[in-house]
């Protein structure tokens, strides 16, 4: 199998991810309630972590992929903060 085909498939997948992120952003801006927006942001960031890994493959710079896990962890922490906020409690409780 030629290596060029691999990179072509990966670049098509990257473009697909780029287009789906537009849909997530529409929900992020439109979303009637706050949990809707946070949910869209979650999905966007988990997509973005895949996107970073695919870009590292595509640019042939594997070392670039280091931002992936930090993004995942902080977005999860954000979920917890927001659900604590919405349940009308102080974060320290």
């Amino acid at each position: 199998m030629d290596v060029g085909i691999v990179y072509t498939i990966i670049s098509i997948v990257v473009l697909i991810y780029l287009m789906t992120s537009v849909l997530y952003i529409i929900r992020l801006i439109k979303g009637p309630t706050v949990p809707d927006r946070i949910l869209a942001l979650d999905a966007l960031s988990y997509d973005l972590s895949v996107f970073i890994a695919l870009l590292a493959l595509l640019l042939r710079r594997p070392i670039v992929a280091s931002g992936l896990i930090a993004l995942t962890l902080w977005i999860h922490a954000l979920d917890i903060y927001v659900s604590k906020y919405i349940e009308a409690r102080e974060i320290g409780e």
Binding site: Y7, S11, V14, L15, L18, L55, L58, L59
Partner: peptide, 10 residues
């Protein structure tokens, strides 16, 4: 597809 065009798009 020229791979190097994708970073510019993103």
């Amino acid at each position: 597809i020229d791979v190097l065009i994708i970073p510019y798009v993103v």
